[in-house]
């Protein structure tokens, strides 16, 4: 039972990751809700910053690089 739960969570996380890559606007409400929830329960600051970072993250990037220029170019 625990094994199945772990597998379900891992597969769901991977699905969420790809949803975020392919349709960033679809996962934005999830990050927004999580950010509000973390703030309301007084979660540790690094955790809140990490989630806030995801909210501000741009959808672009190539491979491991996310250093897109403001003009849309690649760093």
């Amino acid at each position: 039972m625990i094994e199945t739960a772990i597998v379900v969570v891992v597969v769901a996380c991977c699905s969420f990751y790809w949803l975020g890559r392919l349709a960033p606007s679809a996962v934005r409400p999830v990050w927004q809700s999580l950010s509000r929830a973390l703030a309301s329960v007084g979660a540790p600051a690094p955790m809140q910053r990490a989630v806030a970072g995801r909210l501000g993250a741009r959808s672009g990037g190539c491979g491991a690089c996310k250093g897109c220029d403001k003009g849309g170019g690649c760093h």
């Binding site: 597998v7 891992v10 597969v11 991977c14 699905s15 990751y17 790809w18 491979g63 491991a64 690089c65």
Partner: peptide, 21 residues
Amino acid sequence: ASTFLSRVGTIIVTLSVLLWA
């Protein structure tokens, strides 16, 4: 090397998990 391993750790691992499912 870090770019390649980072791709393995993100794109490839997550797709492998989804394909396994």
